[in-house]
Amino acid sequence: MQNFWIALAANMVAMLVLVCGIYYRRHFRKDLALAYLALNFGIFGVTMLLNGSGAGAGLGLGLFGILSIIRLRSDTLTQEEVAYYFISLAIGLINGLHPDPAWLSPALSLAMVLVMFVADHPAFGRRTMRQTVTLDTAYAQQHQLHAALAELLNAKVLRTVVIELDMVRDLTIVDVRFRANTAAGKRRELLDAPSIESIPAPASAPQPQVAGERDLAQRQGR
């Protein structure tokens, strides 16, 4: 019984740190944060019940595996969100089984949270990006494709995977991994920014006339 309460506390702390402290602060999706918590605690409860009953734990794991596949296919998720999805599932399974010794579940949960904190840290590969680019020219040669992408993205092209090459419509669809040239991008922003001399000065407001000047103007008009 002691293992159960330790595992429950470890599951709650690990998921609060993972979802509220790491995932939401970096990806800002409230709906998936709720899905991760619901998935984790649901698997934790069912695994705990199956572990203490006559039914095999394999039945429950297979059922939740099918539900996970359906959930992943019903919505468009990024690979980072899929990673959080399976980590939440794994933490629920580990703590639901609450194996001996009692410190094993908290230690494994902490290790998984630390792995996600480091692997999904913004400083890790922050200049390396991936995009699917559609070009209005059919590039049959790889060096021409790399040169066009490097100029278009203002980056160093690391790898390209041509998804579609249409010579009839003169079209190229390519999956490109690249490293952004941050220094060049900053210089371009500074060059494109308007200078102080080019900003038009605001029109000056008309100066109010004093009473003597207004009377003189009225007499001259008469």
Rank of each mutant, 00 (worst) to 15 (best):
P202F: 00
E151Q: 13
L18W: 00
Y36N: 07
A155T: 10
G52E: 03
A183G: 12
T182E: 07
R26F: 02
T132G: 05
V17D: 00
V174I: 09
L34V: 15
L37W: 03
V174R: 09
G21P: 10
Q142C: 04
R127V: 01
S74H: 02
L191G: 04
I199V: 15
S68G: 11
Y36I: 09
D175K: 10
A123C: 06
I66C: 15
I6S: 00
I69M: 06
A7T: 05
L50W: 01
C20R: 15
Q207W: 08
I199S: 05
R130V: 14
G62D: 00
L135R: 07
A102L: 02
F86M: 07
Y139N: 09
H98Y: 11
D166T: 11
F178G: 06
A183H: 10
I196N: 03
L145D: 11
R179E: 15
N95E: 02
A184N: 12
C20Q: 13
D215W: 12
A111W: 02
T137G: 04
V113H: 06
R25S: 07
S53T: 12
R188P: 01
R222P: 05
M48T: 14
A148S: 13
L97N: 05
G56P: 14
V115K: 04
V162H: 03
K186A: 06
L59S: 08
R159C: 08
A33Q: 08
L93C: 07
L153G: 10
V157F: 07
V168H: 11
L93W: 05
F44R: 06
N3F: 02
G42E: 00
I163D: 09
A90S: 15
L216S: 10
L108H: 03
F117P: 09
M12G: 06
A119R: 11
S88F: 05
N95I: 04
A155G: 12
L59F: 07
A193C: 11
W5Q: 01
R179Q: 14
V13F: 07
H27V: 15
A180Y: 02
R214Q: 14
P101H: 00
R187T: 11
L18F: 04
G62T: 12
E197H: 12
R130G: 09
T160F: 03
S105R: 08
L37S: 03
F64Q: 09
A217R: 13
L49T: 14
A217L: 13
N181A: 10
N181L: 05
H121Q: 04
L61M: 10
F28A: 09
W5F: 14
T76L: 03
L108M: 13
A138K: 12
A14S: 15
R219L: 13
T78D: 10
V210T: 14
S68F: 03
M1I: 05
G56V: 00
F41C: 02
R26E: 06
